[in-house]
Simulated assay, not measured.
Amino acid sequence: MVQTVLFAAGDAPTLYPFTVNKPGALVPVLNRSLLEYVLDQLAPFSTEWIVIVGHDDSQITEVMGSAFKKKPIKFLKLDQPWDWYDALLAIRPHIKGHFLFAPLELIPARNDLKNLMSYTPGMLTYDPKITGSDETHVLYVDGDQPHEIIYPGGIRPSIFFFTHSLLRSLTTHKGPFQAFLHDYMLEHKARIICSGHCLPVRYAWDLLAIHEILLRDKKMRIRGTVEQGVTLKGNVWVGAGTLIKTGTYIEGPVIIGNDCVVGPNSYIRGSTCIGNRCRVGNAVEIKNSVIGHNTHISHLSYLGESIIGNHVNIGAGNISANLRHDGKTIITSLNGAKINTARKKLGVMIGDEVHTGIHNSFYPATKIWPRVDTLPGQVVSRDLTG
């Protein structure tokens, strides 16, 4: 077991609109934050947590407290500007030996982490060709395979297992950090584990694919109240204090958090995760979506392949479109660029504390920034940023 460093600083603009008002470490994964979920995966291999935070550290420290799984958390705050180089310099006085370095861009599987720690240094990453499959392979780093570390846009989302020698080498570092990392891995004969079990967190819509995969392993658990006349099919997880009312039809895998009210006559379809203290009302259909905490979808609405933030109120009669007429993959705008999402279906993405008017319609892949409200009857055909 070793010290584990998590890089939780950064504005994560590729995860907009969910990181406009909070750090990327707090986006949702199975009704927890991304940071909590990754810590849980790393826990069997870690003796101490060192979490690097930025200017918005108060939100992270409030969620995490001073320990996780009875292991202390040490928060190191970096002032902007910063990058991985600054982060590694900051942790140098605190590292005693080998350590895991985990930027919050990858959700690892524990078997892969165990494999990673048999190599020093090592790099655990996903393979775009096999993401979601059962395949894992190990590559030697040599001059013919630098693309496995560096790819257009930066360092591939990965988790690293380093020796203390990396920190000592930083003192002589000159030039781009990517080049330094590549040269260090070559010199020390690193191994790269490319795994189909690892899930990248690059864009907001990746949260849909992440939940689709992680929900497969959830088993049925009913801790709330399910009235007569409710149909549960497949694996359905109902949290404590939750009431499922008559006429509701739920097709798993589905998670419904604590203290929710669902129904009567709601239809919840597979690969849906609903947060705590939510209200899903009459004639509401939700399919393959992620719903944040304290959100109300109370009347006559459809949300498919959508991601909804915390404290959102969806007005009556809201409909999200999630499919192009020509059947092609959906393209969306993000930070001034057009991005192919590689998804055939993608609905609306709504940030925290949004109130939508009644009878709203949303074009596929439209995004609404936090605290931006819509009017009754509005057709949302482009991103609403305020």
Rank of each mutant, 00 (worst) to 15 (best):
Q3P: 11
V5H: 07
A8H: 00
D11R: 09
A12K: 04
T14D: 15
T14H: 05
L15P: 09
G24V: 09
P28G: 11
V29A: 08
V29I: 15
E36K: 12
L42Y: 05
S46D: 02
I50G: 05
S66H: 11
K70I: 08
P72L: 06
F75K: 01
L76Y: 05
L78Y: 10
D79Q: 14
A102Y: 01
L104D: 14
L104T: 08
I107S: 08
I107P: 02
A109H: 06
K114R: 13
K114Y: 02
N115K: 15
G122Q: 08
M123V: 15
M123K: 07
G132R: 07
G132W: 03
D134V: 09
L139Y: 08
L139F: 12
D142C: 14
D142M: 13
G143V: 11
D144H: 13
Q145L: 11
E148V: 06
P152K: 00
I159Q: 01
I159R: 01
H164L: 10
L166W: 01
L166R: 03
R168C: 02
K174Q: 10
P176I: 13
F180W: 06
L181A: 09
L186G: 09
E187Y: 07
R191E: 13
R191C: 09
I193F: 05
P200N: 09
V201A: 08
A204W: 04
L207M: 14
L208V: 15
L208H: 03
R216E: 14
K218D: 05
R221N: 15
E227Y: 02
G229S: 07
L232Y: 00
V236K: 03
W237A: 07
G241P: 02
T242C: 02
G247W: 02
I256R: 01
G257D: 12
D259K: 09
P264V: 06
N265I: 04
S266V: 05
R269L: 13
T272D: 12
T272F: 03
G275A: 13
R277V: 12
C278M: 11
H293V: 12
L300E: 10
Y302A: 13
L303V: 04
G304Q: 08
G304A: 15
I307K: 02
N313I: 07
I314D: 07
G315P: 08
G317V: 14
R324S: 10
K328P: 05
S333K: 09
S333T: 14
N335E: 14
N335P: 04
I339D: 06
N340W: 00
K344P: 02
L346P: 04
G347D: 00
V348P: 14
H355E: 08
Y363E: 13
A365R: 01
A365Y: 00
K367E: 09
K367N: 11
I368C: 11
D383C: 13
L384Q: 10
